[in-house]
C-alpha cells in the first residue's frame, strides 16, 4: 500500500455521511479497490482488425465472420474503396456504442467504487456503468448503445460482461458489422504501474462463426484531464441518403 492510498483512507474515513453505511467499512471497501486513477491513452489504434503498438501495425486480426456478415462487410469495403463509403452512424454524431468506444482514439477514465465501476470516455462524452454488486443481466433488455454491463473482480482484474447492444452500431469505421446478439467480455488489468491491458472476447451468434479476440494496451497519464469533445459543434461528414459526404 503506497502513501497515496494511505492518505486516501484518511480522507475517506470521514466520508459517507449520506449513504447510511458505516463510515469505516465503506472507506475500507473503497481503499481495497485498485487504483486506476488518472486518464488512459489508447496505444493500440482504433481498428480491432488492425491492432497497433508504438505507431506500428501489429499482425492483422481478421474477424471470423459468418457468410451473411462477411458479405455485408465485403460490400462495405468495396463501397469505401470506390470512394462512396456506406454510412458510418458516428458521422451524424450517433454514439459509437460498445465495443467501438473501448478503442476510441481519445482518453478514458475509471471511477471505481464499491458495487460499481463507471467508465468515462472523452470521445463523444460516453459513459459506461458496470455493476459489480453481484446482480445479473435483466431478462428483458432493450438494446442500447453501451448495453448492460455486469462485472466482478478476479484479484486485480476487472471482468466485464456486456450484452443488450444495438445492431446499428459498428465494431469500427471500416464498416465491420455486428448484430444485437453481440456479447462482449473484457478482462482489464494493470501490467505495470501505468500500463493497462484490456483482453476482449467477442461472441455473436449471428455475425461471428466463432469467438473473436482482441487485446488493447493503454498508458496512464495522472496529470492529464478531459477536454470537451462535442460532435455536434463541427459536423462536416453527415450522412445523406445513406452515404457519408464531406461538407
Amino acid at each position: 500500500m503506497n502513501k497515496t492510498i494511505k492518505s486516501a483512507v484518511g480522507l475517506l474515513t470521514v466520508a459517507y455521511v449520506i449513504g447510511g453505511a458505516p463510515a469505516a467499512s465503506a472507506a475500507q471497501k473503497r481503499a481495497s479497490l485498485p487504483d486506476w486513477g488518472g486518464v488512459w491513452e489508447n496505444l493500440s489504434g482504433i481498428h480491432f482488425t488492425q491492432p497497433r503498438f508504438e505507431e506500428k501495425d501489429l499482425a492483422p486480426n481478421p474477424p471470423p465472420l459468418t457468410p451473411e456478415y462477411q458479405a455485408k462487410y465485403d460490400q462495405a469495403r468495396a463501397a469505401s474503396k470506390g470512394g462512396r463509403p456506406i454510412n458510418d452512424p458516428t458521422a451524424n454524431c450517433a454514439w459509437p456504442g460498445t465495443p467501438r468506444i473501448i478503442v476510441a482514439p481519445f482518453v478514458h477514465e475509471y471511477l471505481i467504487t464499491p458495487g460499481r465501476v463507471t467508465i468515462i470516455y472523452e470521445y463523444m462524452s460516453q459513459v459506461r456503468r458496470v455493476r459489480t454488486d453481484g446482480s445479473k443481466h435483466p431478462a428483458d433488455l432493450d438494446p442500447s448503445y453501451n448495453g448492460d454491463s455486469i462485472g466482478h473482480w478476479e484479484g486485480n482484474t476487472l471482468v466485464i460482461d456486456t450484452v443488450g447492444l444495438r445492431a446499428d452500431t459498428m465494431f469500427e469505421n471500416t464498416g465491420l458489422p455486428h448484430s444485437d446478439a453481440l456479447h462482449v467480455v473484457e478482462r482489464i488489468h494493470l501490467t505495470g504501474p501505468d500500463d493497462l491491458v484490456n483482453e476482449m472476447t467477442f461472441e455473436d451468434a449471428k455475425a461471428l462463426a466463432k469467438p473473436w479476440k482482441a487485446t488493447w494496451r493503454f498508458k496512464r497519464h495522472r496529470d492529464w484531464s478531459f477536454s470537451d469533445y462535442v460532435c455536434s459543434e463541427n459536423n462536416r461528414n453527415p450522412s445523406v441518403n445513406g452515404v457519408t459526404v464531406v461538407k
Binding site: 492518505s7 486516501a8 480522507l11 475517506l12 466520508a15 486513477g37 471511477l111 467504487t113 463507471t118 468515462i120 463523444m124 462524452s125 460516453q126 459513459v127 456503468r129 484531464s225 478531459f226
Partner: peptide, 22 residues
C-alpha cells in the same frame, strides 16, 4: 445525475447527453 467523489475530484454525470462535470 450520478455523482462519484474520490480524493481528487467530484465527478458529476448528467443523464442528459452524458454531460460530465469535474
Amino acid at each position: 445525475i450520478q455523482v462519484v467523489q474520490d480524493a481528487k475530484k467530484i465527478t458529476i454525470i448528467y443523464e442528459y447527453e452524458n454531460n460530465v462535470r469535474w
